[in-house]
Design a protein around this nucleic acid. Structure first.
Lengths: 249, 249
DNA sequence: GCTTTGGATTGACCTAGATCAACCCAAAGA
DNA sequence: TCTTTGGGTTGATCTAGGTCAATCCAAAGC
């Protein structure tokens, strides 16, 4: 497969989260048609950079399928992931010329994009959109704060368990599962290295804690990436937070 | 001084950041008068709780003077600060009934508040406001991501230095200083314990690293809280990031 | 003036997670 | 088939920062 972004043909938006989850929920038909006009799809394959920090960002959009990561890198190479973009998440920000972090496809990914300038225009004329974006940004901020607790105060084992519940929840909500009671199965969208960058750990520690959780029966591993959680409550008990284990957010 | 929130009399808004920095910048006069009607001031003294996580939040507003912290606490008492509210920062979120984190006055503080429900109403009718809130929330998200790098990848010494530059910058912008070249002086708005909760460290480590920076001549301490930075560039060199040390944000 | 109090400092020691190094293993290419 | 490659695992060792405990010190109260 070619290692460059591909602009996909316009497609039916039934599977495009931005249509129903992000900006369009309350739009009038004519506003929708404007969105339609400036819309296009981009695909990236796993590992491929989407934008580098400092680059001009000529589009905004949301993730249709696949996973991307936002990372920050220090001069000496230390890296910290600061955003994980899963399906329905929004990428890019209105009123910013350049992007502040490296964005990279973690898996093969499809984005539903809008050209930035017309989109910005639309924001000023369509209050629904900026209100919806505010809503999404506040959710992102909440997630970031949860993440800060993880980075600052949790043990390596708690970090791994918390990370796994986050992925499990998002995966379940993607499949429209109503409860996380029984045995649960999902794929890790990240390499051990990316997981380490997510949690502020080294790959060795990630690996060790994964095997520890496996040996303790909290998770089962099928290959490197496929996870089976026999008892979600047991996993939650390892996270350190007093979560109620309810529905995926 | 009484240890309970006091509702201050209406006062001239010249010193109220929300008037010019937050929601009012582009408002029409009649929109301003609506804001005026639902506005009131609250004062809290240092250490006093403003709201607890889970509480109903009946107002939103911005910090006029003083400092507040948002913290998250685990069952076993581990605490992580996830937000630091300095003058002109916005507190509370539209469309959320309850608040997600403990908010506490770090110093004596004055808030310029708006009753939440009418304020939410105003958002739907005044696009400027939600656009401005979006802008502010995006800035907050950027700050959170910077913070995540600090928590996940920086050494204790780098954490302290980074924290000091953040406070120094905000303090300088408050005093309308145009450059941070020369010797620099400011007060720490936090106890060592709150600093530790900010950085994911213990108070002992904070204390040790502060004395280390002092012994190395990077900072001078006058009492426990007053900091003198003889050379801001030298402090920046300790932060670990390749900042240009430019103007305060 | 003396005592209490609560934040802050300092020292001795310990441990969770980092570092360094060897090895595993499945997929891809030749 | 063999080799390469890149992600992953495991072991031995080290160390930054945590833990525990004693002490300091300035402000507040009596």
């Amino acid at each position: 497969m070619p290692n460059r972004p591909l602009t996909l043909p316009k497609q039916d938006c039934a599977d495009c989260p931005i249509r129903h989850k992000a900006v369009c929920a309350h739009c009038e038909p004519d506003e929708l048609s404007v969105l339609e006009e400036i819309k296009f799809y981009k695909g990236f394959s796993a590992g491929q950079p989407i934008v580098w920090a400092g680059d001009q960002m000529e589009f905004v959009g949301s993730v249709v399928s696949g996973v991307a990561s936002m990372t920050q890198t220090m001069e000496d190479g230390r890296r910290q992931m600061v955003g994980l973009l899963l399906p329905s998440d929004f990428l890019g920000r209105p009123n910013r010329e350049t992007v502040a972090y490296d964005v990279q496809a973690a898996t093969d990914i499809v984005l539903c994009c809008f050209r930035r300038n017309p989109f910005q225009q639309l924001i000023t004329t369509t209050p629904h959109i900026s209100q919806r974006l505010l809503e999404m940004t506040l959710d992102e901020l909440d997630a970031a704060r949860e993440w800060m607790l993880l980075l600052g105060r949790k043990t390596a084992r708690e970090k791994i368990a918390s990370f796994l519940t986050i992925i499990a929840r998002r995966d379940a909500s993607l499949k429209n599962m109503s409860s996380l009671g029984g045995p649960l199965t999902f794929d890790l969208p990240l390499t051990r290295e990316a997981m380490a960058d997510y949690m502020g750990l080294t790959i060795e520690t990630v690996s060790r804690q994964m095997t520890a959780l496996r040996k303790d029966g909290v998770i089962e591993l099928d290959g490197k990436r496929h996870i089976i959680v026999p008892d979600f409550e047991a996993l939650l008990d390892e996270t350190g937070d007093d979560d109620d284990g309810g529905l995926p957010s």
